[in-house]
Structure formats: C-alpha cells, structure tokens
C-alpha cells in the first residue's frame, strides 16, 4: 500500500476509558471464597485477573479491601492453582517489603493462597487521576480568573497550583522510594496513585488538592527488580497516563520527573533510559 511505503508516525496507545457498566461475567457471577459472604462485600472493581471488594476484616471497625482471583475456567486446574498462588504470594511479598522499608502502600492484613484471596488495608482518599481530572475540568474557569492555561515557571502560582505542584513532588518521591528499594510497579497509572485522606476526599469547597500522603496501590503486576529498563517503563506508563489527562498536565509530569531524578542515587540513569523507552514506544520492531 502507498501508505505502507511511507508509514505515518504512529501515536502511542492511549489508555482507554474503562467500560461503562460491568460486563455480565463480573462480580455477580462468581462465588466468593469462604468465609466471605456477598452481603458483607461491596464490589469495587473488576480487572482481568482479580475481583475487588470493600469489606471489613478482623474487627467491624477495620475497613478492608478483598482481592479475589477466581479460578479461570479455561486453565488446567493444576496450572490455575499454581499461578494464582504464585501471583498472590508475589503481590503480598512486594507489599510487605514496601511496608518494611517505609514505602507507603496498603498493608497486607491476611490471605489464603489456596483460596485465592488477599485482604489489604483500605486506603481512604481519592486518586491522583481524580485530582488531575478535577483540575482540568476547572481550567477554563482558572484562566478566566487570570491564570494562564498552562503553568509556567516564573509566574506566581495560585494556592491551588502550589498545592498541585507539591502533590507532584510527592508522586516523584513516592515512585523514587519504590524504585530505590528494588520494586517496580508494572502498571503505574494515575489511577493507581492514591492521595490518602482519612476523611474521604470529595471535591472540597476550596478546590485545593488534598494534602495527604501518596499511597501506591494495585501491585498485581509488580516485580522485584533494580533494572533501569523496568524502572523507566514504569515512568513511561505514568507519563502516558498524564498525557491522556490533558496536554496541560505535561509540565506537571515534568515536576514529577524532576523530583524523581533527585530522589535516589540511580534515578538520573533511569531518566536517561526513559528517553530510549519513549523512542521505542515500549514495543520492539516485529520479526516476520
């Protein structure tokens, strides 16, 4: 084809909006593992791998998240058990390692590898994605109030902007700490970065971003590694998530990278590797 001889540049795959409405084969189709009962578990999300519920654990005052990996009917039962166990264990090990080393992640409260479930601390608050979306939503209004559309250095920042930038610095430090202890997240999107807030974050009246700590969540694809490549791919995935929010979020992500770069000894070389990963678009050239 004519277009094939001179291929147009290919834009990277943008993370698409999650489907509206749950697919039929979701929470309602699966039986929860004993001793969890449906009336005590409120469905939160369904990934390809795990069903996630909100529940209580140990005491009625301890809100918790139940992650259940139901058996996959297509997989040989022996293989299915082996994989479910290995993945739950890997996730729990990474989380406990993070908690030991002071990286802010949900605590592991309990698990049953054979039963296919893991219970984690419930983290109250919103996601960084929510904060960014809220800010993007108000951009026109902010520019009317005399702020320019994009944030540029050298101009005095509003209180909201300052809080937003502080949040970005926290994200940079949190990711840096994670990488420093030898863990890569594997699916580092803005939806997997929470801002802890004991009083549930809603769109508060001041419009100020929440000031709580960054908590990294969903370590289902995490690995223990100190390779620059893996670390750079984490950053690249996060960069694309920022880009998908709004072009105006670009300088914000630069602040994340800047803080990340100063957060641990090997960070600078990860940033150099990130350049290569960007050029590659994560995918290698395919052999015929």
């Amino acid at each position: 084809m004519a277009s094939a001889a001179h291929p147009e540049p290919i834009e990277p795959i943008q993370p698409l909006q999650p489907p509206s409405g749950r697919p039929r084969g979701g929470h309602d189709q699966h039986t929860l593992p004993a001793p969890f009962l449906p009336d005590a578990c409120e469905p939160l999300t369904q990934g390809a791998e795990a069903l996630v519920y909100r529940t209580h654990f140990l005491t009625p005052q301890t809100p918790a998240v139940l992650k259940y990996r139901p058996p996959k009917p297509y997989r040989h039962p022996t293989l299915d058990k082996r994989l479910t166990k290995a993945r739950l264990l890997a996730e729990a090990r990474v989380l406990v390692k993070c908690r030991r080393e002071g990286v802010s992640v949900p605590a592991v409260l309990g698990a049953d590898w054979e039963g296919g479930w893991l219970v984690l601390e419930y983290v109250g608050g919103g996601t960084v994605r929510g904060v960014l979306d809220g800010w993007v939503h108000r951009l026109p209004e902010l520019s009317r109030e005399g702020n320019s559309e994009t944030i540029s250095e050298g101009r005095k920042k509003s209180e909201e902007e300052e809080a937003l930038w502080e949040l970005m610095r926290k994200v940079g430090r949190a990711v840096g700490r994670l990488h420093e202890i030898g863990v890569c997240h594997g699916d580092l999107t803005t939806s997997n970065l929470m801002v802890r807030d004991e009083e549930e974050y809603t769109e508060n009246e001041t419009n100020l971003p929440p000031s709580g700590d960054i908590v990294l969540i969903d370590f289902g694809l995490a690995t223990q590694t100190i390779q620059d490549e893996d670390r750079a791919v984490d950053l690249y995935v996060l960069e694309r998530a920022f880009a998908a929010t709004h072009p105006a979020a670009e300088p914000l992500f630069q602040e994340v990278l800047r803080t990340y770069g100063g957060s641990f000894k090997g960070a600078k070389s990860v940033l150099r590797r990130l350049e290569d990963v960007r050029l590659r678009g994560r995918k290698k050239s395919m052999l015929g």
């Binding site: 084809m1 291929p7 050239s285």
Partner: peptide
C-alpha cells in the same frame, strides 16, 4: 519487507 508492523497500516 520481512518486518512490517500491523499498526503501520492506515
């Protein structure tokens, strides 16, 4: 060409 990615085609 031996290498021709699926996403190169418009």
């Amino acid at each position: 060409t031996q290498r021709y990615r699926t996403d190169e085609v418009f």
